[in-house]
């Protein structure tokens, strides 16, 4: 178990170094930071000084190494566009993105799993058919369109909910939260739904197909033959066996939610990291882009690690128990 975690952590470090390499390559290949920073009027002397100050005259691998060392310490340099430390910029916006992602993920799971179980158990009712049809819409409509439609209906026509921003936030140390004010909570609703809808339908369809699969297995038939209550069979035996694939996909989707919050944040002018990233792309603000890339990669690695650990919690077959003799079947 511990060996497994250590192995996973080493792999995570490798992944981060690889992503770091890509992020670093941005500096070399996306635009020329020196000319961006210098503007129109400069002398050769000032240009040279800036190149030396930025360390750009050093060999490639030295620069890469320095980048990694700084990144490991949370130093990503200064934003070209805003002339402020990138770390500060990201930290300011991290709470907004994480709160939005958290709400979206909770919503997707809290609605998607029960709907999946229901449609899996009651295959032929009209409610199931309706949910499946509607879920097709959820899967196929692009996120930005859903966001715009929601704004149109609930902000423009009905005027119930705000169409942009986070509302009033409360600062808890460096973390700003929208959970504590009515306007903050109201502002969360539309973006959360927008971001959750795709994941929700995906989770629903996944849980449904896994349930159908598991309900056909011998141990479910045997559980019925044992006369267990339906509730125990459906939720205790069937649902738990669908969890491993559901955790896998949901974990990956959670990373996706954080990463693809870009679109939702842009639609709703949500002051999160995704919005910052889009603005940085349009002005070739490489330090922000690179740091964002690394941060997202970090989230993915972290979530994957948690997913792997959850497998252990759910499936006893993965907990290799050498103490128990008696032979292993299949």
């Amino acid at each position: 178990m511990i060996a497994f975690v250590i192995r996973r952590l080493l792999q995570a470090v490798l992944v981060m170094m690889a992503v770091g390499f890509v992020a670093f390559s941005l500096f070399a290949y996306v635009g020329d930071p020196v000319s961006i920073m210098l503007g129109q009027d400069f002398t050769e002397e000032t240009r040279q000084r800036l190149v030396t100050d930025l360390g750009l005259d050093k060999p490639f691998f030295v620069q890469y190494f320095n980048f990694l060392v700084n990144a490991a310490q949370g130093q990503f340099g200064i934003s070209y566009r805003l002339a402020r430390p990138v770390t500060d910029l990201l930290m300011e916006r991290l709470p907004a993105t994480l709160e939005l992602s958290f709400c979206a993920a909770t919503l997707a799971l809290a609605v998607g799993v029960p709907m999946g179980v229901y449609t899996g158990l009651n295959r032929d009712t009209w409610i199931s058919r309706l949910l499946l049809t509607v879920s097709l819409v959820g899967v196929s409509l692009p996120t930005f369109l859903i966001g715009i439609l929601l704004i149109l209906v609930f902000s423009v026509v009905l005027g119930w909910l705000p169409s942009f921003g986070r509302g009033t936030t409360v600062a808890l140390g460096w973390w700003t939260t929208g959970f504590l004010t009515p306007t903050g909570l109201r502002a969360l609703i539309l973006p959360s739904i927008t971001l959750a809808l795709f994941q929700m339908t995906l989770i629903m369809r996944l849980v449904r197909s896994e349930m159908l699969e598991v309900l056909r297995t011998d141990y479910i038939k045997f559980a019925r033959a044992r006369g267990l209550h339906n509730r125990a069979i459906n939720f205790g035996h069937a649902l738990k066996n669908t969890l491993v694939p559901v955790i896998t996909i949901t974990g990956l989707q959670l990373g996706g939610i954080i990463a693809f919050a870009i679109v939702t944040e842009t639609v709703f002018q949500w002051p999160g990291m995704g919005f910052l990233f889009i603005q940085s792309v349009s002005s070739a603000d490489v330090p922000v882009m690179a740091a964002y890339l690394l941060l997202i990669a970090f989230f993915f690695v972290l979530i994957n690690l948690i997913v792997d650990l959850l497998y252990y919690a759910v499936d006893p077959r993965l907990r290799i128990d050498r103490g128990a003799a008696g032979g292993h079947g299949h």
């Binding site: 011998d218 141990y219 038939k221 045997f222 033959a225 044992r226 499936d315 006893p316």
Partner: peptide, 24 residues
């Protein structure tokens, strides 16, 4: 359901798949 398991027990063909793998 109350008859099954209580008055009529059942044994199935494949013991490898008759037991739920996730529970002791």
């Amino acid at each position: 359901r109350r008859v099954r398991g209580k008055e009529i027990g059942a044994i199935f063909q494949d013991p490898l798949t008759s037991l739920n793998p996730l529970y002791t």
